[in-house]
Amino acid sequence: MATPVMDKVEAQSAASPYITVTFRVRRFNPEVSAEATWQDFQLEIDPKERVLDGLHKIKWDLDGTLTFRRSCAHGICGSDAMRINGKNRLACKTLIKDINPEKPITIEPIKGLTVLKDLVVDMEPFFQAYRDVMPFLITKDTNEPTRERLQSAEDRERFDDTTKCILCAACTSSCPVFWNDGQYFGPAAIVNAHRFIFDSRDEAGEQRLEILNDKDGVWRCRTTFNCTDACPRGIEVTKAIAEVKRALITRRY
């Protein structure tokens, strides 16, 4: 039996934890100016705090006009995907200490979607691509079973990874193909198609594959792996896209 006395957290909490960091934030407000600019903010912060905590310190204590989306603050709701030091991350899942606080921390909106104000982008094209892959279970049986459909633990495991998606757009907005061509479905939509194509209960895999066989579909993927790196849920996005490509060739899934 473990009998804990001291642990890492306690060992660290003795000294004053605060350090001074610079947040370099991309600002844009068309009500004020047509141009986007960089603005620096200095703040005192515990390096174990989140980037989101830093943004809140700015908004609450320094500049109430700074605008960003956020809700749950622990990586579940998908509101606060942004580009932090050039990489797509969730602000609420990124600790200051993990992103080199010695240098200014740059914070920009995610790319490839129209910026509306500061870190807020237009999410509508992203959700439209999601809706286009028919992201819901489709079954042909007209007689609903009285109990649950059976599914083996192995069949359930087959698509587990892609059920984790929180639709934060970190993957899609990290994809160079998406940046250059907004028509591309993007990784998130393919992930959500994968979630149903490989669900043994679903019967519309062929339809979804045909949608993704389109010129703006899965073949546009250049296997850059940006999406996999960006996913805050640890989904193997590129692998999921590859499985959809393979299913298109073999028609087995």
Binding site: R149, R156, D160
Partner: peptide
Amino acid sequence: EKMGLPFNRTPNGTI
């Protein structure tokens, strides 16, 4: 479940 929710399963395939 009928709407598609991926519940964890028992060895005999039920929820």
